[in-house]
Nucleic acid binder design. Structure first.
Lengths: 109, 109
DNA sequence: CGTGTAAGGAATTCTGACACG
DNA sequence: CGTGTAAGGAATTCTGACACG
């Protein structure tokens, strides 16, 4: 299970105050985007949020879209699509999804 | 003057508490190594220390050497040597150093 | 020399809520 | 819907100092 993980980019080590400085977003905004599931910081033992550089980049994307008037809801959908496409097991998951859909369909009948 | 600088590795964004968790060192130790000039965190506007992943790695090296009984003083010297060798302008600086030495030598005569 | 610790203050972060719209 | 703000508490960080050795 242990991956290579020498990637600083994904290590959750940045506190919300620094993220705020880095992105120009307010603490309120950052927390709100989490509430809307646009980002998922880690929590330390005592509950403070920790972000990665990836999260920071993501937040900057979010900021851009928000400036264009895109709602968090829409942003979420867009990001899910993008992530899906980049996953190696995209096609496999697609297939499973279709199978599940069929299964549910048949149960409902 | 603006360098490429897309390197997350050198961005000073990690607070001392997280660095402590990452390295296993106590806050006291981390601050002390700064006092001895083994590391140089940045300071936020209000004075809290911020470290980079490079700093974290460096601290782990320091921790190893300290375990081997090496004094901070020695560690500093070793690290300076290593850094010097890795600098692109190492040879140029070397040369300047020699010229300066000659210059001083001649003045003293 | 290197590190622990208690001390007091300042700054950070957290949550839930009210406000506006 | 998205964001600001005041509120009270808890956790973090800072510095200078005393302690041991």
């Amino acid at each position: 299970m242990e991956q290579h993980d020498h990637s600083y980019k994904d290590k959750k080590v940045i506190s919300i105050g620094i993220v705020s400085e880095l992105t120009g977003l307010s603490l309120r905004q950052i927390r709100y985007y989490e509430e809307r599931h646009l980002i998922s910081p880690q929590r330390t033992t005592r509950g403070t949020r920790k972000y990665s550089f990836s999260d920071v980049e993501r937040l900057m994307e979010i900021a851009n879209k928000r400036e264009d008037g895109v709602q968090t809801n829409e942003i979420l959908k867009e990001m899910r699509k993008k992530e899906m496409r980049s996953k190696p097991d995209y096609r496999k998951k697609m297939l499973e999804g279709q199978l599940n859909a069929q299964f549910h369909f048949r149960n409902k009948k």
